[in-house]
């Protein structure tokens, strides 16, 4: 048995799952819209968490944040559960599927057999939707993949109960009630407000402040850690910035697209201008990645860590200005 489901590819798994689930309930909404309403733009530098021998840089909020805020701001009820026992988790999933409810699940990427091998790290916050079961095989809609994939029961248990940092513990969620999209305007405003807060008003290692802090620390990397390690750190930034699950420049374009759509919905020309600014910032992030890659490809020429840090500082300043204007524009 397989639930009729409109599977569509997306650039970020959580947006894609949220959009696909809402679309199934008859709420037609685009991916950038979900991203914007869910306040998905973020930055954090986490020097105390190490991944593959380098600190973690996050261009996305905590896993689950986008789904939670998007549904909350749109006034849609969701049901979310965590489990201790794999048997119970699978039984609940089967029950949902037999009722015809497509169910979102949080899984670890490493043991996902259909995933491209180059992306299979121990990353435990990927989102997929279960669509149905046949014999021992489950139909899986993964927004990163083009088509609907299959997973065996054993594989699904393993990915749902993946271990390591941020273990998903069989988390699953579904949209409960169906509501028409009457108050999209307020939802957009709420989403923007939340995003302004998390970029401007969170201090320390998060948001715009976090970028400035990273740019300050970055200047000291080669002296403090040696060239080899510092190169790996830079590589990590670019990987996190451009990788599917984590965003960075891609997320800036996604947000610009959201602002463009929001400008039309709210009939606010200011947002159109800000969308163009955001596109420029995204382009600068791309340039930042190219410059940084010169260093770790050892074709630096005249580029030094100070230049990269200057660029990052500049990006921080630009985003600060943009979000300040954005906050004023929706008042």
């Amino acid at each position: 048995m397989k639930i009729e489901f409109d599977h569509q590819m997306s650039s970020h798994c959580e947006n894609g799952v949220t959009r696909n689930l809402l679309r199934h309930e008859g709420i037609d909404i685009s991916e950038p819209m979900v991203f914007g309403i869910g306040a998905g733009l973020f930055f954090a530098y986490l020097p105390f968490i190490k991944l593959h021998g380098a600190p973690v840089f996050s261009f996305r909020p905590m896993p689950g944040h986008i789904f939670k805020h998007a549904t909350k701001n749109l006034g849609i009820k969701v049901k979310s559960q965590k489990f201790r026992s794999p048997a119970k988790a699978m039984a609940k999933l089967d029950e949902n599927l037999s009722k015809g409810i497509p169910t979102g699940m949080v899984v670890g990427v490493y043991h996902l057999s259909y995933f491209p091998p180059q992306y299979r790290f121990h990353f435990n916050a990927h989102n997929i939707v279960g669509l149905g079961k046949e014999d021992n095989q489950y139909y899986i809609s993964d927004p990163i993949m083009e088509n609907v994939e299959m997973l065996s029961q054993e594989e699904l248990i393993r990915v749902r109960f993946a271990k390591g940092t941020g273990s998903p513990k069989g988390k699953m969620y579904s949209v409960e009630c169906n509501k028409s999209l009457g108050d999209l305007d307020t939802a957009i405003k709420k989403g923007i407000k939340k995003n302004v807060t998390q970029m401007l008003h969170y201090k320390g290692i998060v948001g715009v402040d976090g970028m400035m802090y990273l740019s300050k620390r970055m200047r000291k990397w080669p002296k403090k850690y040696g060239n080899k390690k510092a190169e790996r750190f830079l590589g990590q930034i670019v990987r996190m910035q451009e990788e599917i699950g984590t965003g960075g420049a891609g997320f800036r374009f996604l947000y610009a697209s959201f602002l463009q759509e929001a400008a039309q919905k709210l009939e606010n020309t200011q947002l159109d201008k800000l969308s163009a600014d955001m596109t420029q910032i995204g382009d600068l992030w791309r340039e930042f990645a190219v410059e940084a890659s010169r260093i770790y490809k050892k074709r630096a020429g005249n580029t030094s860590y100070n230049d990269i840090a200057d660029r990052l500082y500049d990006l921080g300043q630009k985003e600060k200005v943009l979000f300040t204007h954005l906050g004023k524009a929706i008042k």
Binding site: H52, Q118, G235, Q236, V238, R239, Q241, E242, A289, S293
Partner: peptide, 11 residues
Amino acid sequence: FEPKNVALEQA
């Protein structure tokens, strides 16, 4: 994207 590919290869 080339810079990302290189970073991924190095990882």
